[in-house]
Amino acid sequence: MTQLPPLLLLHGVMMSGSAWSRVAPLLAPRYDVHAPTAAGHAGGPALTGSATVAELTDHTERFLDDLGLDSVHVAGNSLGGWMAIELARRGRALSVCALSPAGFWTPGAPDQTKRAGKLIRVRQLTRISAPVQPLALRSATVRRLSMRDIASHGDRLTPAEARKSASDLLGCPAGLDLLSTTEAIAPLDPLPCPVTLAWPEQDRIFSAAVHGVTASRLVPGARHVSMPGAGHVPMIDDPEQCARVIAAATGV
């Protein structure tokens, strides 16, 4: 029996492995798919002290070690895209597909703080609205409006999926540390493996016009692609497009 190539899916900050619940089944016929929840996130391994991207990447390496996998194809969104690039730097990636990756910024500058501020506001609004969420999220309009900073079509989630997203956000102790990190992506040239950077065209957090330009300078060998109709978390807006972009990036 032919063994399927391993594929690791890494979610964004204040989310969980369930962020890939609509994409993973589309990829499962072609890959051995793993979608863990990151350390310091709801359902993931606990952290001690302040959370850093480096430490989360350490935990992900241990996850691969436990599976007996030396190297894998890696796809990640936002924070997960950043971690995918760091795994490549460490020699653990066969290929990388980073969907709207975080980390292409100057720490403390507006290209980080303004974008992180949007996610912090999402967290604050989610906390304030928690008592009414079970009822409110039954409304497609409410789901779309409440998720407008991270998705163009939040209404495409079911009420149960939207509640799980809110629960993951509020249950993430590492969130504020990661949103205020002083880390950034260091130059990566030459590339240790093929790297695709995918930029959703309706992203309100990290845009190709700002962060993609920085990425071109820091990772000059990467391939850039656009994702029409999708927001910052394209797995919500267009799972099929995500699966196609990831599959093309692996070259399998």
Rank of each mutant, 00 (worst) to 15 (best):
M1T: 01
Q3I: 15
L7R: 10
L10M: 04
L10R: 03
H11R: 08
M14L: 13
M15T: 07
M15I: 00
S16I: 02
S16Y: 04
G17I: 04
G17K: 00
S18A: 15
S18H: 11
W20F: 11
W20L: 09
R22V: 12
A24S: 08
L26W: 12
L26R: 11
A28H: 08
R30H: 15
R30G: 10
D32P: 04
V33N: 12
V33D: 08
H34F: 14
G43M: 05
P45W: 11
L47P: 11
G49D: 14
S50V: 12
T52I: 07
A54K: 07
A54P: 03
E55G: 11
H59Y: 15
T60I: 14
E61M: 14
D65R: 10
D65T: 12
G68H: 08
G68C: 07
L69M: 11
V72Y: 01
H73T: 09
H73K: 07
A75I: 02
G76W: 01
G80K: 05
G81S: 04
W82C: 06
A84I: 06
I85Y: 00
I85N: 01
L87S: 07
A88E: 11
R92Q: 10
S95W: 07
V96T: 05
F104R: 02
W105D: 01
T106R: 08
T106L: 08
T106G: 00
G108C: 13
G108W: 10
P110G: 02
D111K: 02
A116H: 01
L119R: 00
I120Y: 04
R121N: 12
V122S: 03
V122T: 11
V122F: 14
R123Q: 10
Q124T: 10
L125P: 00
R127G: 14
I128W: 15
S129N: 02
P131E: 08
V132S: 12
V132F: 13
Q133D: 14
Q133E: 12
L135A: 15
A136T: 04
L137D: 07
S139N: 14
A140F: 09
T141N: 03
V142F: 14
R143Y: 07
D155V: 01
P159E: 10
A160W: 02
R163C: 03
K164Q: 15
K164W: 12
S165D: 09
A166G: 04
A166E: 03
L170T: 06
L170W: 03
L170I: 10
C172S: 14
C172R: 01
C172F: 00
C172K: 00
P173K: 07
A174H: 04
G175W: 00
L176P: 00
L176A: 03
L179I: 06
T181Y: 01
T181D: 06
T182I: 02
E183K: 04
D189W: 05
P190H: 06
P192F: 11
C193P: 06
C193F: 05
P194E: 09
P194W: 12
V195F: 07
L197H: 01
W199H: 08
W199M: 10
E201A: 09
Q202P: 01
R204G: 12
I205S: 01
S207L: 10
V210R: 04
H211P: 02
G212P: 05
L218R: 13
R223Q: 14
R223Y: 02
H224V: 06
H224P: 08
V225N: 12
M227A: 03
G229N: 06
A230C: 15
V245T: 15
I246E: 06
I246M: 05
I246V: 13
A248Q: 15
A248S: 15
